Simulated assay, not measured.
Amino acid sequence: MSTIAEVEIPAQEFALRKTLEQVPDAEFDVVRVAAHDSKHVLPYIWATADDFDALNDALENDPSVDELRILEDLGDERLYRMNWVDQIRVVIHILIEEEATILNLRGKENRWRLRILFPTRDALSATYEFCEESGLSLDVRNIYEMSETRHGLFGLTEEQHETLLMALEAGYYDVPRDATADDLSDNLNISHQAISERLRRGHRSLVKNALAVGPGDGKE
């Protein structure tokens, strides 16, 4: 069965370590990453920073970066394309050796957080063992098993998935609403407080796992 894992890696053991040291306010959100061989990783990265001149200088001089290119400049954020050529052993292992898919990858301050879809639970275990044997740190934060439905893809429990779909079908999200939280609680035979908490936690999981997975995101 496919498995989704959220893991954290210290910035000093990953690509862009020098850049994050020199520009500590920088944040990176990788929207696509691929490994074409065992020596290069090609990411597309949205970046924010207080000083983009300093960020560009740091990236140009970062030993893990090659062939840096700015694709979009929106003023307060930029889209970069680059090659990662150093400190990428774990990414190479995940993408090539385990044939896994990196769903989200975000770095800021002293950590990177990855959300990875592994083809099997054994592939996750093999990645953890690879990091241990290589002297790399891999902190597994959450694990979700994929089920016959797709709720595991977004970190939803079965109850949250059922409740959100019921709310959608009942018109809870319509404007104006065709159903209230009381209507949903009556249908599920649970309290108003329980339905509110289930909806809130379900919304949080959707936002966290679909839009904002990163170090520090979604902490209780």
Rank of each mutant, 00 (worst) to 15 (best):
A35Q: 08
E145C: 00
E98T: 06
D182S: 13
L199D: 07
A34K: 15
E6I: 11
D76F: 12
E8K: 04
I9E: 10
Q22I: 08
T19Q: 00
N187A: 14
P63R: 11
V31G: 14
L124H: 03
R121W: 03
D139R: 12
Q12T: 13
C131W: 09
D25S: 06
L16G: 02
E98F: 00
L164E: 00
E13I: 03
R111D: 09
A100K: 02
N83T: 10
S205I: 00
K39I: 13
L138G: 00
R177H: 05
L20V: 05
S2E: 10
V90S: 07
A170V: 11
I143M: 07
F118D: 01
N104C: 09
G75R: 10
N56T: 15
A47H: 12
A34Y: 15
E99S: 14
M82C: 15
A26I: 08
A170T: 03
D86L: 15
A54G: 13
A170N: 07
P63Q: 11
G152A: 02
A35L: 10
I4F: 04
I143D: 05
L136A: 10
H40I: 13
D62I: 00
G107W: 02
E98V: 00
C131D: 03
P215N: 13
E77R: 15
L156S: 00
A212V: 15
V65S: 02
E145L: 08
S196Q: 04
D57Y: 15
D57A: 11
A167D: 01
A34M: 12
I70R: 06
Y172D: 03
R89Y: 06
M1L: 08
N83P: 11
R78N: 07
V41Y: 14
E77V: 01
Y44F: 13
D139A: 12
R111N: 10
L188F: 13
Y173F: 14
D57N: 14
Q160L: 00
L79R: 07
E8I: 08
L164P: 00
D86Q: 12
A47S: 09
V65L: 07
E98D: 05
D37P: 12
D183N: 04
W46G: 11
L103Y: 05
A181C: 02
A126H: 14
L71N: 10
T127L: 01
R204P: 00
G214N: 01
S134F: 10
H161T: 00
R78S: 03
L68P: 09
L71V: 11
T163C: 13
A11E: 09
V91Q: 11
V90H: 11
S205A: 14
N110G: 15
D174H: 13
E97S: 13
E158R: 05
N104F: 09
A5H: 08
P63M: 04
E13W: 12
L105A: 12
R150E: 11
F52W: 10
E133S: 15
E97F: 07
S137E: 15
W46Q: 09
L114C: 10
T149E: 06
T101G: 07
S125K: 14
I143R: 13
V23K: 01
T149M: 02
L114T: 02
V175C: 01
S125M: 11
Y128A: 07
I96Y: 08
H40A: 14
P176A: 09
T180D: 06
D186Y: 14
E97I: 08
I96W: 06
P176W: 08
L95G: 05
R150N: 12
A47E: 07
E67C: 06
L114F: 08
L42H: 13
G155N: 03
D25G: 03
D178G: 15
I45Y: 04
